[in-house]
């Protein structure tokens, strides 16, 4: 008993202060993957079932809606291409570095950590797909989180709403920089240390600022929902709603940013 206590404390201490137990953790993570897979099966099958018993009408409607959406998006993309060229030209005129293209990898969420106080999900892509710790994850609507742990074929992602997570953002309208921290609720993030005199209004879009080098610049993070200014405090109390569908997305994108020297 005493021996096991000593070993446990040793393992705990070694893991807290060094990275020498990473291989062991990766190995064990690979072993326990089936547990997550089986735990997700009910949702997988219910999804499949609702897909296969959807009526012809519903499918037609969905098809129509998607076509329309595709048309819209391709129109936006056309503009985007010319805008990007123009942006690059102007940047080169200013003499600043051209922004690099980023590559993405589509991943599926195969597990959700059940604890309500920690917001983490498990993805089906891991080390063998080139995923690395610290990699940014986005979904169709905005910034989703970052990779905190990898095994051979899976990775664990900390969502932006986790209480221990924070992301550098800026207000799209005014370029005001700040830090958005998770609150432990999926639908609320909090803006920290914003002076009460700051120009920020409900409805402002927050985008990732790229400071810190972890998240690529310009992904939507959230929409400001409430700004509470108390004159007796030095900082305003500001809440935002994450843009990403943190509790609904099934597919997310792993972003490979190519900023040299900043990825690790």
């Amino acid at each position: 008993m005493i021996a096991l206590l000593v070993i446990s404390s040793l393992v705990f201490a070694i893991e807290s202060y060094t990275a020498s137990l990473e291989p062991l953790r990766k190995l064990l993570a690979t072993i326990v993957v089936p547990v997550y897979t089986v735990a997700e099966l009910p949702y997988y099958f219910s999804g499949k079932a609702s897909e296969s018993i959807a009526s012809r009408n519903t499918l037609n409607e969905e098809n129509m809606r998607m076509r329309r959406r595709l048309l819209e998006l391709s129109q936006i993309t056309q503009q985007f291409i010319s805008l990007r060229e123009e942006n690059a030209r102007l940047r080169s005129l200013l003499g600043s570095q051209e922004q690099v293209n980023t590559e993405v990898l589509i991943a599926e969420i195969i597990g959700v950590l059940p604890s309500p106080s920690r917001h983490e999900v498990v993805l089906d892509k891991g080390e063998q797909h080139g995923v690395y710790v610290g990699q940014a994850v986005v979904d169709a609507h905005g910034l989703f989180g970052q990779v905190v742990e990898i095994s051979a074929s899976t990775s664990r992602v900390l969502q932006i709403s986790d209480p221990s997570h924070a992301v550098p953002v800026q207000v799209n309208r005014t370029d005001l920089r700040m830090v958005a921290a998770g609150t432990g609720r999926k639908d609320v993030i909090e803006l920290e240390y914003v002076p009460i005199t700051a120009d920020i209004l409900p409805g402002d879009l927050l985008v990732s600022s790229g400071l810190g080098g972890r998240f690529p610049r310009g992904y939507p993070v959230g929409l400001v929902t409430s700004v509470v200014v108390d004159e007796t405090q030095s900082f305003a109390y500001i809440e935002a709603k994450p843009s990403a569908a943190l509790d609904r997305s099934r597919h997310v994108l792993l972003v490979f940013s190519e900023l040299p020297g900043l990825t690790q």
């Binding site: 096991l4 070993i7 705990f12 807290s16 137990l21 997550y36």
Partner: peptide, 14 residues
């Protein structure tokens, strides 16, 4: 279990 739940190794083990 530690690895499964993403907790520091050694705690659930002990």
């Amino acid at each position: 279990l530690d690895v499964l739940l993403g907790e520091p190794m050694g705690v659930n083990a002990f």
